[in-house]
Nucleic acid binder design. Structure first.
Lengths: 376, 376
DNA sequence: TTGAAAGCGCTAACAA
DNA sequence: TTGTTAGCGCTTTCAA
């Protein structure tokens, strides 16, 4: 100890202390009724005008219960009168937080990002948080360190992780260890319920299977997502299991792996439709790929849905704009963003005390024009 | 003065000073070679290890030229060694900044937002800024005050405004008065070049006119954007002027105002195609509406492009995924975001000193499958 | 070229 | 229930 002790103190009485105040009332006695300074009011101004200590004002700001009602009202009135707003930087510096939430993603789907983002914003706004967006690149070996650095430097109060980066357990742990609350949006439960918003794509994929079978399709093609996406697994599992329940097994040549891109959907459909007995229906694991199927069908002169039923997944903007409109699965994406942010905020507010139930989302099938019974 | 003077000083020597340090080397003398503390290193740690004052470290961090090279290298080495990173909150509190950029928008087009956002992120990352996104709602009467409050509270170093809210001069002025640098992305010059990235949609719309005329179209339908969008005006001006240059005047019944939405495009096309002598080509002021035109044509059994040529604007994801693919105008949206952020950062760095040239963007026409000569 | 000391605006620990 | 005091980690005069 004592390395610093006393070295920064001295006979300061004699020095002129430069305070930051601008114009002052002629006497210190009277509190001005209106705020006439250009300078933005600080907690000190509020304290002086209310004739209480900074700390009491601080208590009011932070909703401490240990303030007499009169005192609180008086302070609130002055705060409103002079338009005081606490400085988040100062607040954060003193309390080791930031009043900032983060959104970390590496998903290329713009519509998805914006929808989630809007949901997160809806909740965070309400609670007085601002949102810092932070795309990342899993292919970069330093990406986890980068994200950690971002979170630490900004002292983020919490972070929402989107798939597929949300599926990276190592990252989630790293961030949690760094003292940042994390909520992950994921396709399958892989963490405590308080830390995840889970969407059960497999159930919806099962609905797709039911739908196709109900229509009478037996020759069914399936384009999966890339194997490193959890959602791709879940969608495949739900679809295949449910088909099996109907006594249908997809032969390997009817299943093609796509990359969740338009081009890959086109190519996969080309493969499926190029075989001697082409399927009468194709389920593409997302809308982008389903659009690719449309293209392949268009090129071959096949008419949807007369010659081919096509089902997508995501209900992206595309789905309702295609001609014919695309049957697809809708997830309440924006709601998922909102739920994730709400979880985060609840945990921040409760100091992680209050247990927070699971947030589960079950998407559902929207039948549109691209569905029809197979030609007989 | 003296309101505060002396009241917070005293005989501090005798008090135990509670410093935040964790484990310390046994003696103050030797600087440890590696950083063994759990606590994140601060500027004080760097100063102590480098045996210089805080201020000198600060100078190094802030790239001050007034540091001897040896000193700088020594400090840099230690910074790297212990993995020190300055705390933006503390830095900001002391210097009245935040190292944060803002993105303010009220545009509903997700793809557009994300593209711009990515461009802004590309530039701001590089310069060590993080990005706070802030959608707003012009229909709310308090929206300008809200945005101002946001900018002031967060002490944003700069803000990028997207259209259409970027067209609001009052907002831009309010923010500038609040001391925040603003760069606007706009469809027509309405500010100093340093403050805007201008995209010349009218030129590209002219290209569309040339293209249609070259193909031989004379009966041309035009769906404009909503009149309160600057871009809608510019696109209309460019298109109509250029048609006029070819000696073509659009009769009023061939011009319908849309709302930049899919549905409005559908409805407008319905109107245009429902008239006795329907146009052989339709230029929709954005891709969303062009998709609506596809739908109306599909419903009426018209084949694009055989019966109808359709041109869009924006080169959204939709355009290349439609069947047939849509001829449209591509703006380098992401680049515009990057340019805007670069301007902001340059102005911040230069203290607004260095004049920054105009950033002008000229989009261009992409001819795809939806273009053809009119049937004869 | 460097350093000492005083804040930035707020919260925290402790005391009253 | 309220106030006092010492920081949070950095930059900024001003002086050396």
């Amino acid at each position: 100890m004592g390395r610093n002790a006393g070295k920064s103190q001295g006979m300061v009485e004699s020095k002129t202390k430069k305070t930051k105040q601008g114009v002052q009332p002629a006497t210190d006695a009277a509190a001005p009724l209106t705020w006439t300074l250009k300078r933005k009011p600080t907690i000190n101004d509020v304290a002086r005008l209310a004739e209480v200590s900074k700390k009491t004002v601080s208590r009011v700001i932070n909703q401490s219960p240990f303030v007499k009602d009169d005192t609180r009202e008086k302070i609130d009135a002055i705060i409103r009168q002079i338009g005081y707003a606490p400085d988040p930087q100062a607040r954060g510096l003193a309390s080791q937080r930031s009043f900032l939430l983060g959104l970390v993603y590496d998903n290329p789907n713009a519509q998805y990002i914006v929808n989630i983002q809007n949901g997160v914003l809806e909740a965070s706004r309400k609670a007085g948080y601002e949102l810092v967006v932070h795309p990342c690149d899993r292919s970069n070996p330093r990406f986890a360190a980068d994200v950690k650095r971002f979170v630490e430097r900004q002292k983020l109060d919490g972070v929402v992780l989107l798939p597929p980066v949300s599926e990276n357990n190592a990252l989630a742990e790293t961030l949690a260890e760094a003292g940042c609350r994390v909520v992950r949006i994921v396709a399958a439960p892989l963490d405590q319920p308080a830390n995840t918003v889970v969407y059960h794509d497999w159930k919806a994929a099962g609905e797709v299977a039911d739908h196709l079978v109900d229509l009478g399709h037996r020759a069914i093609g399936f384009i999966t997502g890339p194997s490193f996406y959890r959602s791709a697994h879940e969608r495949a599992r739900g679809f295949i299991d449910r088909l099996a329940a109907h006594g249908i097994t997809l032969p390997p040549e009817r299943v093609v792996e796509g990359a969740y891109t338009f081009e890959s959907g086109d190519a996969a459909a080309e493969t499926l439709l190029g075989r001697p007995d082409r399927p009468t229906a194709i389920f593409a694991s997302n809308d982008e790929m389903a659009a690719g199927v449309y293209k392949a069908a268009y090129r071959r002169g096949l008419v949807i849905p007369r010659d081919l039923t096509v089902i997508g997944f995501d209900d992206s903007a595309l789905a309702s704009r295609m001609c014919p409109t695309l049957s697809t699965v809708r997830s309440p994406i924006r709601d998922m963003g909102r739920m994730a942010a709400e979880k985060l905020i609840a945990r921040i507010a409760a100091g992680d005390a209050a247990p927070i139930g699971a947030s589960e989302v079950v998407p559902h099938l929207l039948v549109r024009e691209s569905s029809a019974a197979p030609a007989t």
